[in-house]
């Protein structure tokens, strides 16, 4: 069901953990739907993401997308990090099964939430960044046919 890359990032997740006194922390998702992602960013004075760590409660795809997202933003500038979309995360993982696409959205959202937290703390504005939704599953409805 999962690509080799997804399995690799699930089995050997990169950058698991916490950052003390992080520049920005973002937590998205909810336990009700079965996935929560938290991203920690360490951003230096030049606006470069020096370090990035994550913690995730969720399925294999949720862990793998978090892991890949941290890899993609580490060492990047804020502007570059803003370009790490869910599509970019999915492509880097050689794709996700359709039912797991929401995990990659969650990863993008988690990065944005951490950047939002950083921007708020520093009183700056990041172009293109909007306040994260509290729950990315809002508005999604299961459709069942009988």
């Amino acid at each position: 069901m999962y690509s080799e890359k997804v399995m690799d990032h699930f089995q050997n997740p990169r950058n698991v953990g916490e950052i003390e006194n992080a520049s920005g922390i973002g937590t998205v998702g909810n336990a009700k739907c079965g996935d929560i992602m938290r991203i920690y960013l360490d951003i230096d004075d030049d606006g470069i993401i020096r370090d990035c760590k994550f913690k995730t409660f969720g399925c294999g795809a949720a862990v793998a997308t978090s892991s890949m997202a941290t890899e993609l933003v580490k060492g990047k500038s804020i502007e570059e990090a803003m370009k790490v979309t869910n599509k970019a995360v999915m492509e880097a993982l050689d794709g996700l099964p359709p039912v797991k696409v929401h995990c990659s959205l969650l990863a993008e959202e988690a990065i944005h939430a951490a950047l939002w937290d950083y921007a708020k703390k520093h009183g700056i504005e990041i172009e293109g960044l909007e306040e994260p939704k509290a729950d990315i599953h809002e508005g999604e409805e299961d459709e069942e046919e009988y």
Binding site: V16, E18, T27, A31, R38, K55, T56
Partner: peptide, 8 residues
């Protein structure tokens, strides 16, 4: 659990 924000 080591990976879980809920556990943290």
């Amino acid at each position: 659990r080591e990976m879980s924000p809920l556990y943290e």
